[in-house]
C-alpha cells in the first residue's frame, strides 16, 4: 500500500503526469482517503505555479547594457567588413 511518505517522493511526477497508469491510480486512491496528502499535493502544485508565475533570474540592468553595447559593436564591425568586401 502506498504510504504518505511514498506519495511525497513521487509527488512531482504525479503533478507532471509522469507516472505509470498503475502508480497514478494508487496515488489517486490514497488521495481519496488522506486529507493531509491532498493538502500537500495542492500546496506543492501551488508552489510550482508560483515558480512559473515568477519570472526569475532577471539579470541586472548593467549586464544587459554591457551586452547591448558589445552586440552593437559586433554588428558595426560585421557591417563594415561586409561593406569592404562589396
Amino acid at each position: 500500500m502506498l504510504m504518505c511518505r511514498d506519495l511525497a517522493v513521487i509527488a512531482s511526477d504525479y503533478i507532471d503526469g509522469e507516472l505509470t497508469g498503475r502508480q497514478n491510480l494508487s496515488v489517486k486512491m490514497h488521495l481519496m482517503m488522506c486529507k493531509a496528502c491532498r493538502t500537500f499535493i495542492g500546496n506543492l502544485r501551488a508552489s510550482t505555479e508560483l515558480m512559473q508565475a515568477h519570472s526569475s533570474g532577471h539579470p541586472n540592468e548593467d549586464l544587459l547594457r554591457r551586452i547591448d553595447q558589445q552586440v552593437a559593436e559586433a554588428l558595426r564591425t560585421r557591417k563594415s567588413r561586409s561593406g569592404d568586401q562589396e
Binding site: 504518505c4 493531509a36 508552489s47
Partner: peptide, 30 residues
Amino acid sequence: TGRWDVPPRLQFHESADTLMENGALSDCLD
C-alpha cells in the same frame, strides 16, 4: 510507518498570481 507526523498545516488558498502580488513573498522567493 511512513505516515505524516507533521502534516501540511495550511492550504495555500490563493492562486499563484494573487500570491505573486504580495511583494514580500516575491522577494522571499527571490
